[in-house]
Design a protein around this nucleic acid. Structure first.
Lengths: 340, 340
DNA sequence: AGACCATGTGAGATCGATCTCACATGCATT
DNA sequence: AATGCATGTGAGATCGATCTCACATGGTCT
């Protein structure tokens, strides 16, 4: 026989008071006599009473849950972000619902709608694309606290936390050019993704600043998984005149490229040089160690969560845009190439 | 001016019907006239009506949310599991709340209580320890669907999905012994964690079966993070007579050990042999490639989620225990050691 | 004595949804 | 005509909590 959880009504009956009195005693508002309060607390403990948050939220407005819609938590970048947000949420006695958009706009829209119908109090979203921003606009209209993370969306005026993707990509390409590379490949994500576009832009502008005309044959598109990146790298380096260097736009793709090179018998940095965007645990343990553009992962999730909780605590401030710098960590995966 | 979401009451007023009729029309139960239903649907669309799930859940019992309490989603093993559970949950139109116990029992208890007060419908839990199982027992008493994952707890009769940890550890140690190693180190997690205990047990029984007396000086305890594992490995290999081989009990610790060895100028497999529990993306790209005990990560989360949804769909079956086998993947991180 | 305030309590309304059942209409059957 | 059934509608109850305000008591001040 399943035991039905005790309700406030049960507690009130056990303590021989009204529900209103029981609620006052348990939540310390209004007036309650000392003796009455003692009896109510005793009853609550005896019955294992645990207030129903749904009922509370229905009366008062919202559940203590924030929603977080990221690309895919299998990506160590997003896993770290989700972890940091959860830690701060726990501190504020909130629970965190994490959804993975898997970089699919429809899924992002669907997830957001689903979470809103749950009366979720606020959202941290890594928007998939800005083809359609109605769902985000609607959040703004309804005054729902929203923080965009990793990517921003034109026309959505709200708090955001991003990294200088363009500058980071530019640093990588400038470094490859300085090392003599002219045919520089790019392993990139879907250009509907904001970060992907910025990294492409940094790639292209650095090429042009170095007097190199960008060439589509140097670019291979991949989803952000190791498996897809292996395929995309193989495609890129199977062509007649392959790149002499490769820039990969996230750590899973970097790892995929490494595996593809190994499968193709391509040696780094002897045959091909490699620079990856974002650091990862074993970048300094591979042979050779991988040169990366590092972003301050440990700062990003915390910054976004802080912004959200400021808003949730009722503070009404203008939208803040936080932008973190990247840093080029030169290791051993780039070799100098003669001018030819 | 924030727009308050439309309620059923608004829709009913707009369509000039009662709330009961509006509800019937929108949810297709009971009787509603065709014309009436048309007017109601029109009103709902016009007002952007989105039913309040809290109110529904309060009336009907529970929210479409399942809770998942894992060790730490930064661990790729748990990230993969969480991802797979979320994918299946989405298919069943559920949302997933992920909490990280961080292998702290109090935090696990607190998270569970918090989620229960939200009327969460079911739980997948990787229990931290079995020192105190009251919180899990209470779930069973209240007939809340529960699936234990990765670890089980004595005395808790419910669905579970685990891996043969003991057998996996035994395979690793047997292999190291067969390669001539007698001083075999163990980098392990807190023994309150079920998997940790099983892996220790496999380690010890394989040693004894090989005629080797287990020695506490060969064991170093670490939390399951790269940073902690670096420290623990350095401690273990700084002693007078260090091990000739090391078994690490999860992929983050394996990576930490690699980094520690590199810092200490220890060469694998020349100076020390290494076997890790659980495979990871770059295990085949490090120099040397790492020998690992692989577990079927892609199966575990799905199996647990399937069990949970069976229970949630009302099926009343006896508790099922699913146990997956591990597989030793021999690569290049173990060298043969002479009998001395 | 009357007015005002503080303290304490409980009935009933509220939150937004679903559900129940009384009532109404129309049709078919006896 | 009476009865039974199907269809359709709406008032009010329910879910479990919080909130409001009427009522009661006691004390203080004018």
């Amino acid at each position: 026989m399943a035991q039905k959880p005790a309700t406030l009504k049960d507690v009130a009956a056990y303590a021989n008071v009204s529900r209103a009195t029981a609620a006052r005693a348990l939540n310390s508002y209004g007036y309650v006599g000392d003796e009455t309060a003692r009896k109510v607390h005793e009853a609550a403990e005896k019955l294992g009473y645990r207030g129903n948050r749904l009922a509370q939220a229905l009366r008062n407005g919202q559940l203590p849950i924030i929603g977080c819609i990221l690309g895919d938590i299998q990506n160590p970048f997003f896993a770290r972000i989700a972890h940091d947000i959860e830690v701060l949420a726990r501190k504020y006695r909130y629970n965190l619902i994490i959804g993975s958009s898997e970089e699919d706009l429809e899924q992002e829209v669907s997830l957001l709608a689903s979470l809103q119908s749950l009366s979720i109090r606020g959202f941290i979203v890594a928007p998939t694309s800005d083809e359609n921003t109605f769902h985000l606009e609607r959040l703004i209209e309804e005054n729902v606290p929203l923080v965009l993370i990793d990517r921003v969306v034109k026309g959505i005026e709200c708090d955001s936390v991003v990294v200088d993707n363009e500058g980071g990509a530019r640093k990588a390409i400038e470094y490859l050019i300085a090392m003599g590379h002219r045919r520089i490949g790019l392993l990139q994500d879907d250009t509907r993704i904001f970060t992907s576009r910025e990294r492409l832009s940094g790639y292209q502008s650095a090429l042009m600043a170095g007097g190199i005309t960008p060439d589509d044959a140097m670019i291979s598109v991949s989803q952000s998984t190791v498996e897809h990146a292996i395929d995309a790298t193989i495609r890129l380096f199977s062509q007649k005149t392959p790149p002499t260097a490769l820039f990969t736009v996230d750590s899973l793709m970097t790892q995929g490229a490494l595996l593809a090179f190994r499968a193709m018998g391509i040696s780094i940095p002897h045959d091909v040089s490699l620079v990856g965007f974002d650091d990862f645990n074993l970048a300094t343990f591979t042979d050779p160690q991988i040169t990366v553009v590092a972003q301050p992962v440990s700062e990003i999730g915390l910054a976004a969560a802080r912004l959200l909780f400021e808003k949730l605590s009722g503070q009404s401030s203008p939208p803040q845009q936080i932008r973190f710098e990247t840093k080029l960590l030169i290791r051993g995966s780039v070799s100098r190439r003669p001018e030819g």
